[in-house]
Amino acid sequence: MAAPVVEAEARAANRPPVRERKNGRFSVHFAHYKWLYLLLLPGVVYFAVFRYAPMYGVSIAFKDYVPFLGVNGSPWVGVQNFTDFFANPDFPRLLGNTLILAFLNLGIAFPLTIVLALLLNEVRLSVLKRTVQTLVYIPHFLSWTIVASLSFLLFALDIGPLFQFLNNVMGTNIDFLSDPAWFRPLIVLQDIWKNTGWGTIIFLAALATVDQDQYEAAIIDGAGRFRRVWHITLPAIRSTIIVMLILAIGQMLNTGFEQIYLMTNALNREVADVFDTYVYFVGITQGAYSYSTAVGLFKSLVGIVLIFGTNWLAKRFNQSGLF
C-alpha cells in the first residue's frame, strides 16, 4: 500500500526516485561517520575471514570427505552422516552424558559462583577480601592437564591422601578414578575448584555498583544481613545473573574436552563419553571428518536453540535479555 503512495508523492514533487534518495541519505550519513565505519572495518574483516569464511568447511558434514580429494572433490552424501549418527546406539548415551554433565555444572557450579561472590562482597576487611579473591583466582590459570594430574595423585588407589581420607570416613573402598558412579562428581568438583573463583569477577563488578544508600536505609529499617542480600543485592544484580546464565547455557554443551578426555578410562567411558570427546575420537583419531563434523554441527545447532530459547524466556519474564 505504501509504495504507490510514495511513488505518487515523488512524481508529484518531481523529486528523484525513493531509492536514490535513501542512498543519498546513506552516503551523507556514511560520509559523516566515515571514521567510525573505518574503525568497524577490522572487526568486520576479522569475522568475515576467520569466522564466516571457514564455515564453508562445514559443508563436509554433507559429504564423504577424504583429505586427499579436498572439500570440493569429495562426493556429496546428503544427510547420510546425520542419519547415521541419530541411528547410532552411541547417540542417546552421548546426548544423555552431555546433558547430565551440562546440567550438573549449570545447577551446581553456576549458583556457587554467585554465592562465593556474595560471600566475598560481605567481607568487610579489604586486605582479607583481596587475598581470598587472588587465591581463588589462581586455579583458573592451571591447565586441565595439571588439574587431572593432581586428581590422579590425590585419588590414587590405596596411596592417594584423598582416597584414604574419604574411604576411611565413608568406610568404603572406592576407586574414585575408575568407578563410573564417581566420574560426574569428580568432574563437577574439578570444575568448581578451577573456575568458581574466576567466575566471581563479573558478579563482584556488578555488586560494586549497588547503591549503598539502600543498604543504609535497610539497616535503619532493621533488616538483617540475609534480608539485605535477598531484597537488595540479588535484585540489583539480577540482570547480570540473567546475562551470565544465557551465556552459560550457550556454552552448556561445551563440556570441556580436555578435562573429560584426561579423566576417561575403560571403566568409566560409559558415563564419560560426551559430544566433544566423541568428535575427537571419531574425527581426528579415526579420520572420519565428515561424520564428526556432522556431530559437531548438531551440537552447535542445539547450542543456538538453547541460547535463543533462554533469551526468549528471559524476555517473557520481563527481564532484559541478551539481545
Partner: peptide, 8 residues
C-alpha cells in the same frame, strides 16, 4: 574444527 576447515 573451523580453523582446521580454514586451513583446508
Amino acid at each position: 574444527k573451523l580453523s582446521l576447515a580454514a586451513a583446508v
